[in-house]
Write a protein that binds this DNA or RNA. Structure first.
Lengths: 337, 337
DNA sequence: CTCCTATGTGTAACCGATTCCACATGGAAC
DNA sequence: GTTCCATGTGGAATCGGTTACACATAGGAG
């Protein structure tokens, strides 16, 4: 293992000088600089950041606790984080919590032990995790991505879900749909539900609770939900779902009862997962700016770490989403015949 | 920042004792142990691993340089790595090279600086990267996943591609297909091509070079390739592709010329990406054991780090793959009418 | 009743860097 | 010709742990 001492000896200078050369703090003469430089690459010296962190108090690592890496959505964010961390000279420590609160807590603690300079989190919210984050926040800035974190820890990056949902439903309204079903998660407080409400209200349509189905957000939940609403006397002509998995389940269910999408039923998803573009028919959905979110998270963190505003108040960045119209939506058909 | 010294003071013992308590090396009396334990959690003490690494020479971090995290295949491996690293008490440092050799090299160097105890890599092979890995290998064990690395650095985890390909083609043969097309990457040395060859040879069929199309491995390449082979006098009745993207392109092309899959043409992919299960028709494909590969990689690394066989020769683990029969394959039709 | 070993604890050196302080030099300012 | 400041360098303390070593104490073997 080559150390700064070896470099110093070879260059015929003191360790102090080598360190000044490496960090760029303090003066180093021209010729000395050259001698150190050649010593460094003759020896293949790589500075030990752990040792450096002892005095500088920063490791050059950012931590990322992610809810589920197998979700393409989070994988894309992770990719963007890795890229942007690198661009700012940071490494990325990653932990996949697999939607388990206990693992998230363990991960946050582990990252603290490793001395990450900042933390980025997207995991499921839970009291224990919030507690762990609060403790961590005392020593390190934390950026949440897409969390609704009530006791907001530090900064927050999210996308404008509510507007995205509103746009999606407005798109359906513009196609002439009036009976529009919402299939979503349990929280009526979610941006997706609120956007649905907004659009209907704006169009002067009252929310019909028969057409709102809340539950899990997966394929089979979507499948079940659609079959259920189709038994109504006056079934919906369009469905807006809280995510693409649900939407795909809806389409599958529609086919199973011989409804054509989009001529009999229009469907809009949310997230624009990879699958969405390749489903049959290709899914109209709302895309979140994942790369931009990853970038914003890193930049927020770096600003706190290097900028003067270490103690500025919590910041929230809300990025715009984009409605992507494919072929799962079409004009409302007239059912009155 | 709470240090071991604070804990020692509070528990009324020396730092040496605290350290022995934390590491479990050496004797600590029963009552002392208890006093330290309560001091630790009253103060919320978290040991600084960077400091510890200075003397112990290990950081408890594993590095993972990945070719492209947005690829579900690698995301799944990353997830498995994170999980298994955690189970063994390690953290995971991740870098997405985005298939860029220069970034890979930078990542390897960065990880060395951060003192990772072991390295796992899946990135594109390149001379510069191999050189960087060789340098890193001097201080840290390296496990490659799915690489064909000629100058093999340390250990290797891969899946039995050749057998998987053979099984896939054998499946087609058993359905009665005789003219089977292979669409793959440029390397005829690839396991996928060799497995194709194996199966045909075993069935006593000579490889027909007209039916072998080499090129890029993406959707549009598959699309083009199929249109090309269908212009032959005696076109194939089945296609085996080197990955699912190509297979989906093939199916799309088949539809575009009004061929039904599987009744007119059988198609087998490779990788079992998420999309494969949901294409129309659902794709018969070969699944790699990604979670198992991640697990094997970590275990290989941990064995070298903690086991006695630090300097054992390079090890190769080849995991079995699985043919997943869905609905894109069916009996060969008789074209002789 | 010694002697030895197992158990338990404190002291201090050390890991690999950073940084403060002291000390040198040289030219510019007066 | 001093004084001063900018430039350049070495030495030593320091960060937060780990561990080798020295030193106790106690119980069991002889």
């Amino acid at each position: 293992m080559v150390t700064a001492y070896d470099v110093a000896k070879r260059a015929g200078v003191s360790m102090g000088t080598v360190s000044r050369y490496l960090t760029g703090n303090g003066y180093v003469g021209e010729s000395t600089r050259a001698r150190i430089a050649s010593a460094v690459d003759e020896l293949g010296y790589i500075p030990n950041r752990a040792a450096a962190s002892l005095t500088t108090k920063n490791t050059g690592l950012l931590g990322f606790v992610v809810s589920d890496l197998r979700n393409p959505f989070t994988a894309e964010i992770a990719s963007a984080l890795s890229r942007n961390a690198r661009l700012h000279g940071y490494g990325l420590v990653l932990a996949d919590s697999m939607n388990d609160a206990a693992i998230s807590v363990e991960a946050v603690e582990s990252m603290r032990a490793h001395g990450v300079d900042g933390l980025i989190v997207t995991p499921p919210e839970s009291p224990e995790l919030n507690e762990a984050l609060r403790r961590a926040a005392a020593v390190t800035p934390i950026v949440g991505i897409g969390l609704r974190t009530d006791p907001m820890v530090t900064d927050l990056v999210s996308s404008d879900t509510r507007t995205g949902a509103r746009d999606a439903v407005t798109h359906l309204l513009e196609l002439g749909h009036r009976r529009i079903c919402f299939i979503g998660s349990n929280s009526m407080a979610s941006g997706r539900y609120r956007g649905y409400e907004d659009a209907l209200t704006q169009a002067g349509i009252a929310v019909n609770s028969e057409l709102v189905v809340l539950g899990d957000l997966n394929r089979s939940a979507g499948y079940q939900a659609l079959l259920q609403v189709m038994t109504l006397d006056d079934p919906p002509t369009a469905v807006f779902t809280a995510n693409d998995a649900v939407a795909l389940g809806v389409i599958q269910a529609a086919h199973s009862v011989h409804l054509d999408v989009p001529s009999d039923l229009s469907v809009v998803g949310y997230d624009d997962v990879d699958l969405a573009a390749h489903s049959v028919p290709p899914l109209t959905t709302v895309a979140q700016p994942m790369a931009a979110m990853g970038q914003a998270a890193v930049e927020l963190l770096v600003k706190r770490l290097q900028g003067s505003d270490r103690d500025a108040g919590p910041e929230q960045i809300v990025l715009p989403v984009q409605l992507i119209v494919r072929h799962s939506t079409g004009p409302a058909m007239d059912r009155k015949h």
